[in-house]
Design a protein around this nucleic acid. Sequence first.
DNA 1: AAAAAAATTAAACAATTGTTTGATTTTAAT
DNA 2: ATTAAAATCAAACAATTGTTTAATTTTTTT
Lengths: 209, 209
Amino acid sequence: MEFNEKQIQIIETAERLFASDGFDGTSVRDIADAAGVNVAMISYYFGSKEKLMEALFELRVGTIKIRVESLIKDETLTPIQKVNMLIDEHIDRVMRKQQFYKIMLCAQVTNKNPAIIEAAKKLKIRNAEVVGELIKDGQKKGVFKKKVDVILMLNTMFGTVSQTMMNKDYYRQFNGQEALIDEEFIETLIRKLSIHIKSLFKAILVNEA
Amino acid sequence: MEFNEKQIQIIETAERLFASDGFDGTSVRDIADAAGVNVAMISYYFGSKEKLMEALFELRVGTIKIRVESLIKDETLTPIQKVNMLIDEHIDRVMRKQQFYKIMLCAQVTNKNPAIIEAAKKLKIRNAEVVGELIKDGQKKGVFKKKVDVILMLNTMFGTVSQTMMNKDYYRQFNGQEALIDEEFIETLIRKLSIHIKSLFKAILVNEA
DNA sequence: AAAAAAATTAAACAATTGTTTGATTTTAAT
DNA sequence: ATTAAAATCAAACAATTGTTTAATTTTTTT
């Protein structure tokens, strides 16, 4: 499905409010007011609040899939390069679409909407499959260990990034970086996170010798 | 504050429902019905739905703090032993109190209740301080690396465990362990998770040589 | 310029929300 | 056995919920 300007405006307003107040904590009137449209427009365009949520997932998940698939296919890159790019792209995505990832995190906990569960499930399974293939390729080429738990490895990446995004203000405070402007802080955080996870993956994947 | 039997019964019912439907997705009538009490009892005992949530946090967070503090103080253990026990105890806690950790995860995202934010913040800061001291001790004794990012390390532990708990059914499916009974599966998952995180922490903490 | 389609609106809908009331029952203390 | 306190209840409270209606305005097509 394609969305017109007004629809995207409503979706992005909903995204902001869902992230800060939760799905059930946000009323359709809150969304309509914040988006500057009439309440009825939400039913008119999306059918229901539930389906507005599904539209949000459709809009965001779609772009994620394409990026991952094309990265894996690229034959000019070594397995290690691909893993490193996978990490960097994931960090970048989460940090730049924090609101959506917050919503997805909560949606996974309280899994009520079947369409959302299905979307998240497919994304996860596809991720695991694609990365699994990548690991096998690296093992065939002798650069990766023989025994690798792909799911646990991905859980570490997803979990560490989510956790760091959610608690980034504590990190800032703990490291005395309150003086930095927001963008600068995010950049340094992304850099540190990237180094951190890459060294973890190295420990998981690469043979010591 | 201390809670009587009936209060605990209500709190634990609320915990179950908050975890599966979210705070805003659960009505006080849902809780009252599931707990087998009259709706008015919730206001009568706790004052409000919001304060029932705070009571839940009071009940659960209290016990967590004590365990961590006493572990760190134990002088018969080496820094490495302490770190390993910290990991095992955290995994155990999350896996046995999954519902509460789900609630806490969502509460961190949609941080509306100031009392909850404060409780979670204090817990996190105390955790970071305590583990920070432990790391310093290990560095002094020459068993840990000089440069360690404590927050990122803890984010990896918290994140990996949360992520694994939330997606444990995928893990089960992916590894073809549907035949195992629930308790057995949880036990093997705990064991694998423990080994996984300990090897990550080793990579973060211990000098290669 | 007329007709058709799409967008927008205020108002109303019934259902559900958290909380309170005031009466009644149960338990504990005297 | 009497009194006081605690617990429980059905009913009512006003506010908010998601959604729909039917009328009106705007835009597009003919």
